[in-house]
Nucleic acid binder design. Structure first.
Length: 291
DNA sequence: CTTGGGTCCTGTGCGC
DNA sequence: TGCGCACAGGACCCAA
C-alpha cells in the first residue's frame, strides 16, 4: 500500500509529534506482526527521545538518543495516526482532542506510542504485513532490510545513466523492474504504472530493451509522479490515511491505475485502459499510447 | 546470479 | 442474505 509518497506524507505528519519528543509509554497490543517484535521492544523505547524522523525507501526511521533507531514499515495496510492535544490543567491530564480514550484500542491497533508532546501515535495494520524493529543507528545500511536497496528516486543521483546501468541485462519486463526495490527504492505498484504511462512506455517491454531516450523520459516521469503524489498527500484507496487522519487525494489523478476499461486520459487518444497481470501484480496501461 | 511463484494476513466486493 | 472466490498499496523465501 504505502509507497514512497505515502510514507513520506506520513513522515511529515508524524514529525511534529515525534521529533524532539520522548516516548513516555509504549505498548504492543499483540506479540507479533508479520515478524515478532524484538525482545523488550516497548521497554527499550520507554524514555527515549526521537532525534530525527527520516525515510529510506518505504521505511520510516525514528533515530533515537542513545544509538538505536526505530524502524517501521507499513506493509500493505499499515497506518500511523497521531492524536494530539494539549493539557487540561484542571484535570491535570493530557487531552487528546481528536482521540477518545479508546483510540489505540481497536482490534487492529497493534502499537501505541505516548509522547511528551503530548501525543498518542497509534500503529494500525489489519493484515499485519507491516514490520517494526530496532536497529543500531550506525549500522542501518548494513542491515539485511536495507543492504540491497537501490537508489532514492528523488535524489539527484537518480538519473538516466543510473537507470540505464541497472536495467542493463535485465530480462524482466520494465514494470517488474520498477517494483524491484534493488533497482529503485520506494516505487510500488501504483507509481510504477503511472510513471510508465507518463513516459509512454509499455509495461511489457523488457527492461534491457527500453531505448535510452525512453529511459531518460522514465526517470523524469518517476520523479514527477512521486512529487505530484507527495504534494497531493499520497493516494488513499482503502486503508491509507495521513497521520492526521485525512485522506490523500492523488487517487483522483490516476491516469491508469485502477481504471480498467476507462478511456485513456491522454488528449486525443481513443484507447482504453487495460489490466494485465505481471509477476502476480496487476498492471494498468494504455496499449495505444504506451509502446 | 536472476526470475517467477507461493506465502504471510484480513477485509471487501463481486457474481451466483 | 449468504457463500465462495478474486483481489488488495509489500516483500521475503525458495525452487528452477
Amino acid at each position: 500500500m504505502p509507497e514512497l509518497p505515502e510514507v513520506e506524507t506520513v513522515r511529515m505528519g508524524l514529525a511534529p509529534a515525534l521529533e524532539g519528543h520522548t516516548f513516555t509509554h509504549v505498548e504492543t497490543r499483540r506479540g507479533d506482526l508479520r515478524v515478532p517484535f524484538p525482545r523488550d521492544f516497548a521497554k527499550r523505547l520507554h524514555g527515549r527521545r526521537v532525534e530525527r524522523l527520516w525515510r529510506r525507501a518505504k521505511y520510516l526511521l525514528a533515530e533515537l538518543d542513545g544509538r538505536e533507531t526505530l524502524v517501521i514499515h507499513l506493509g500493505m495496510t499499515g497506518r500511523m495516526a497521531v492524536y494530539a492535544g494539549g493539557v487540561d490543567r484542571k484535570l491535570g491530564q493530557y487531552v487528546y482532542d481528536a482521540a477518545p480514550a479508546e483510540a489505540g484500542r481497536g482490534k487492529h491497533d497493534h502499537v501505541v506510542f505516548e509522547t511528551d508532546a503530548p501525543a498518542r501515535v497509534v500503529f494500525t495494520d489489519h493484515r499485519r504485513f507491516g514490520l517494526m524493529t530496532l536497529l543500531d543507528s550506525d549500522a542501518i545500511e548494513q542491515d539485511k532490510l536495507f543492504k540491497g536497496l537501490g537508489i532514492e528516486p528523488l535524489s539527484k543521483d537518480f538519473d538516466a545513466s543510473y537507470l540505464c546501468r541497472v536495467l542493463k541485462g535485465k530480462k524482466t519486463p520494465i514494470k517488474s523492474a520498477l517494483l524491484d526495490q534493488r533497482v529503485i527504492a520506494g516505487v510500488g505498484n501504483i507509481y510504477a504504472c503511472e510513471a510508465l504511462f507518463r513516459a509512454a512506455i509499455s509495461p511489457k517491454r523488457l527492461a534491457a530493451k527500453v531505448p535510452s531516450p525512453a529511459v531518460a523520459a522514465l526517470v523524469k516521469a518517476i520523479k514527477s509522479v512521486l512529487k505530484d503524489a507527495i504534494r497531493a498527500g499520497g493516494s488513499s484507496l482503502r486503508d491509507y490515511r495521513k497521520a492526521d487522519g485525512d485522506l490523500g487525494h492523488f487517487q483522483h489523478h490516476f491516469a491508469v491505475y485502477d481504471r480498467e476499461g476507462e478511456p485513456c486520459a491522454r488528449k486525443g487518444c481513443k484507447g482504453a485502459v487495460k489490466r494485465i497481470t505481471q509477476a502476480g501484480r496487476s498492471t494498468f496501461y494504455c496499449p495505444k499510447c504506451q509502446t
